[in-house]
Amino acid sequence: MQGKNILIVGGNSGIGYALANQLQAQGATLFTAGRHAPEGIQSTHMVWDVQQASAADALTQLPEALHGLIYCPGSINLKPFHRLTIDDYRSDLEINVLGAVGAIHAAYLALKLAKGSSVVLFSTVAAKLGMGLHSSVSVAKSAVEGLTKSLAAEFAPINIRVNAIAPSLTDTPLAKNLLSSDDKRDSANKRHPLNRIGKPDDIASMAAYLLSDQASWITGQIISVDGGMGSIK
């Protein structure tokens, strides 16, 4: 990653923070965006709350050429369908989909000028498997998958690759309510064929690979990193 300019949206915790650490160690030049700058990461930081401001207004310090963009913000809004409101669905779409669209819009010219760049988005195993209580996040992440494939087709002639990673439950601050006791954590581990939930570095390592030149022939893919949950029992 030496000499590569990479934008991480949502790099101050969880998977985004793990990725920032990996890319920094690999020599990338980092640009970050989010409500808070990531601690211990050397980056050009742009303050952006994806639900409060437009990407065009926030992402004003991008380099002329951008080799990678990863959009990490997400949500875990698990409720029975009858308790979910239209505003819940709207919020999940804003965070997961429209924020990504805005970031890609703002970075498009810089990604194009890199003459070989990579965009990485995030889906979820719940977009592949029918999982109760997940209808809002499943709708939003399914839209992310559609966006990934459509943009991959549209951007292929200008050598911008677009892929998405679909994790299962990962030990991040976003999932703290689902892992708030030893019993919950043990149950979550046992639901996965590999008998554990994900770690941020598990997912970040795949993202780093997709951003690298080693993945230069991969685009339009939804890649499951889920401990086997989406494929085997």
Score class of each variant (00 low, 15 high):
119 V>K: 00
3 G>D: 01
210 L>C: 03
31 F>G: 07
179 L>M: 02
127 A>I: 03
43 S>E: 02
143 A>E: 05
229 M>V: 14
178 L>I: 09
94 E>S: 13
117 S>C: 06
231 S>I: 13
176 K>L: 07
126 A>N: 14
61 Q>S: 13
31 F>E: 07
16 G>V: 04
144 V>H: 06
121 L>V: 03
152 A>T: 05
104 I>Y: 04
233 K>C: 13
84 L>H: 07
172 T>N: 11
108 Y>R: 11
209 Y>K: 03
230 G>Q: 01
94 E>K: 08
143 A>W: 05
176 K>T: 14
11 G>Q: 00
146 G>C: 15
185 R>W: 07
27 G>F: 06
60 T>V: 14
216 S>D: 13
214 Q>W: 12
216 S>I: 09
69 L>F: 05
103 A>Q: 01
217 W>A: 12
175 A>E: 04
155 F>M: 12
89 Y>V: 11
2 Q>G: 07
204 A>M: 07
72 C>T: 15
142 S>M: 09
4 K>Y: 06
198 G>H: 02
81 F>H: 12
85 T>D: 08
7 L>Y: 04
224 S>I: 07
209 Y>H: 06
83 R>N: 09
173 P>E: 07
9 V>C: 09
111 L>T: 02
39 E>F: 08
26 Q>M: 09
93 L>W: 15
140 A>W: 02
16 G>L: 06
216 S>P: 08
118 S>V: 05
73 P>H: 05
197 I>G: 02
186 D>A: 12
57 D>V: 01
171 D>V: 08
195 N>D: 14
65 A>H: 11
178 L>V: 06
99 G>V: 01
51 Q>H: 15
54 S>R: 08
47 V>Y: 10
232 I>H: 13
104 I>L: 15
120 V>K: 00
7 L>S: 04
148 T>I: 06
40 G>L: 03
229 M>I: 10
214 Q>T: 08
53 A>V: 13
119 V>D: 00
36 H>Q: 15
134 H>A: 01
13 S>G: 08
207 A>N: 08
190 K>W: 10
171 D>E: 10
101 V>S: 07
153 A>I: 12
211 L>T: 05
220 G>Q: 10
205 S>I: 01
1 M>Q: 00
229 M>F: 14
74 G>S: 09
195 N>A: 15
31 F>L: 10
183 D>R: 14
156 A>I: 12
202 D>M: 00
132 G>S: 10
140 A>R: 01
89 Y>H: 15
51 Q>G: 13
40 G>C: 04
184 K>P: 07
28 A>Y: 00
120 V>N: 00
147 L>F: 11
144 V>C: 07
151 L>A: 13
22 Q>F: 03
64 E>F: 11
119 V>C: 04
72 C>H: 11
61 Q>R: 15
115 K>P: 03
19 L>Y: 03
55 A>W: 00
96 N>P: 08
105 H>N: 13
50 V>E: 04
187 S>V: 15
135 S>F: 05
177 N>A: 14
201 D>H: 13
113 L>D: 11
222 I>H: 15
139 V>I: 12
117 S>M: 07
72 C>I: 14
41 I>R: 06
12 N>D: 15
184 K>V: 06
117 S>I: 05
175 A>H: 01
100 A>L: 04
95 I>N: 00
112 K>H: 10
45 H>F: 07
118 S>Y: 02
84 L>A: 13
125 V>R: 00
192 H>F: 12
217 W>E: 10
197 I>A: 03
51 Q>W: 08
